[in-house]
Structure formats: C-alpha cells, structure tokens
C-alpha cells in the first residue's frame, strides 16, 4: 500500500486529488489522509441548495464542494480527519463490504482505549453516536472508499452550516439523514491532538506491511489543479449538477403578496411562474419569461433583473424587493 502525502487543505484540490489518484495509479492500493478548511461536502446526487445554509456559509466563507460518492452532506473543518482508500475492485461479495476499510479506524481507537463499532449502515459510532461517515465510488476496475473522522470538529458550526433555511424546495435528489454525532476528543482518556491520532491510524493501516510514501510531482499536481479548475471549483459542478428541483418563494410587500414557482434544471431556471394579489401592469407572465434560462444564483438573477423595467409589470414594486424575493 502506498500513502500519498497530502498537506493541502483546499477542498476543491483535495476532491480533485482523489479523482486523479483513482484514475492514474493502476493496480496500486492507496491511502490518503487529508483535512480541509471549513467546508460542506455534498453527496453526488444531492441538491446543494437544499443541504446548506447559504447565507451562513457565505458569511463565514465556508467552502461548498460536491464529491463523487453518494450519500448525504457532511461538514469538514481542521478538526476532522478524512481517509481515502483506493484499491482494485475485486469481484465476489466482499466487494460490498465496508468493514475492511472501517476496521483500521476501529482498531486505531481500540489502541487508545476507545470502543467504536460499525453501525451496519455506513457509519462508525462510539456509544451509538456517529463520528465517521463512509461512502464508496466505483469506476471500472477501481474502488474508492472514503470516510470522515470527527476528532475535535466544531459541531456547532456543523449544525449551522448544514441547517437549511425554511425555503420550500421539492426535489428528487438524495436527502441527508441527520445523525447524533460525537467527536473522538470527547472520549479520550489522555489528551491527544489530531496529528498524533493520524499517526496512530497510519501505523494501524500499515501494520505488518511496508509503508511507502509518495508526494505528487509537479506534473501530477498540475493535472490535479486543472481538474480542480475545470470541475470541482465550478458553479456547474457544485450547483449545476444538482438533480432537478422546484422551489417556491413567497414575500409580502406594501403593494401586496407575491409568490414565485421555479423549476430548476442543471442549475438553470427552466420554468418560472409568478402569482400575487398586487395591482399589475403588463402581463406578469412576460416577466417570468425573461427569467427562463438564467442561472439560479444571486449574481445572474441580479444581472437579469437589472435589464428589466420592473415597474412596468408591478407599478409599486422596487427592483430590490423583487431581487429579495428571489434570493432570500
């Protein structure tokens, strides 16, 4: 097994690194241990806007990134240790067995006197509380298994970043399941930092085998950076790859109530309908027409609304009010 040394904490780079290693290290068994700056990591088929608290994430500059594997949204910060195994996807039934990858984590904890167990789904728990979520992605002959390990993660920030506003979204995407979580730090018998735990975990994984280490060379880093630029850090991948969804926005202004139904596909407004009890000017359906094909994102909506004479549709409305309706 080869350990790929990765000191980077940029989530876009790190997710690109996983994909790069999946595709370019034929037949090698690989381990990568890595950490991120505060980040929400969305499951492959999730609706990003449904999983994050957009306002909070923006305010705190929490990164948002989509991963290749499935499942629900998770929160990372430097108090969270991620592990990635990339191996050949063997045939046979043990190919669906998670425990061969979660076992080293359980064993490492056992060494420091903490009893952890697989919960039979995709989590590892301590006293029934989850501290590690796991997911897999299979591509041809290769299998990527990765998991999170909450060591001393800021759980309050986690709850805030993942807490979605009360906006009404209806989508077909994969929903996150809320779990009761715990940090390993809460269960330690003696003080220890995440760096030391990482060493213990590495030793456990490589017990009885040669511990080979590798750092990407300049060309390989270049390739990872390119993948980050072209995929992982793009709006199209992070937001635009969400499954189609419908969203309803409502607001009350001095001039009346207004309600918008939006149908979003590949991150673009495919359909838009506006209703309300306000006194209308031109046919409001025409305003809705202008919004079709626009990216469902603040800057694009703003740019679009700025080209429209709002008062011709709703004489008493202000442009800012309509913008507020769409983005709040």
């Amino acid at each position: 097994m080869l350990e790929i040394i990765n000191p980077e904490t940029d989530p876009y780079y790190n997710l690109a690194l996983e994909e790069h290693c999946l595709q370019h290290f034929d037949d090698q068994d690989i381990l990568i241990l890595w950490q991120n700056v505060p980040t929400v990591v969305i499951g492959r088929n999730q609706n990003t806007l449904e999983e994050i608290n957009l306002a909070y994430v923006k305010e705190k500059d929490i990164k948002v990134v989509r991963r290749l594997s499935g499942g629900g949204a998770v929160y990372h910060d430097p108090g969270n240790l991620n592990f990635t195994f990339i191996v050949n996807d063997t045939s046979g039934l043990n190919r669906y067995d998670f425990t061969r990858f979660t076992h080293p984590v359980i064993k490492a904890l056992d060494k420091i006197g903490i009893k952890a167990e697989d919960n039979g789904r995709n989590d590892i728990t301590i006293g029934g509380k989850k501290f590690s979520g796991n997911a897999q992605y299979r591509q041809g002959k290769r299998l990527l298994h990765h998991g999170t390990i909450l060591f001393d993660c800021n759980l309050e920030e986690m709850v805030r970043a993942l807490n979605v506003s009360q906006e009404k979204i209806i989508s077909k995407g994969v929903k996150s399941v809320r779990s009761r979580v715990t940090n390993i730090a809460e269960h330690l018998h003696e003080p220890m930092n995440i760096k030391l735990f990482k060493e213990i975990l590495t030793q456990t994984v490589f017990a009885g085998q040669k511990h080979e280490q590798y750092k990407l060379d300049g060309h390989e880093r270049e390739a990872v950076l390119k993948l980050k630029e072209n995929k992982y850090s793009t709006w199209n991948f992070i937001y635009g790859s969400s499954p189609p969804f419908n969203v309803v926005k409502k607001a009350q202004f001095e001039w009346g109530n207004i309600k918008v139904h939006l149908n979003i596909k590949k991150g673009l407004i495919e359909d838009c309908a506006i209703y309300g009890d306000f006194f209308a000017g031109k046919d409001i359906a025409e305003l809705a027409c202008h919004l079709r094909g626009i990216k469902y994102q603040e800057s694009s909506l703003k740019a679009c609304l700025e080209t429209i004479d709002i008062t011709s549709f709703i004489p008493s409305a202000k442009r800012e009010e309509i913008l507020e309706l769409f983005i709040k």
Binding site: R44, A135, R138
Partner: peptide, 16 residues
C-alpha cells in the same frame, strides 16, 4: 463507456 450512474445506499457505481 459509462452510460448511467446508479447510487445505492452502499455505493455509487458506473453502468457500462
């Protein structure tokens, strides 16, 4: 070629 992707509770798999 991969023509579809199936996500199950266990894994995301490409369909060829």
């Amino acid at each position: 070629d991969s023509i579809a992707v199936v996500e199950s509770v266990k894994a995301v798999s490409e369909i060829y």
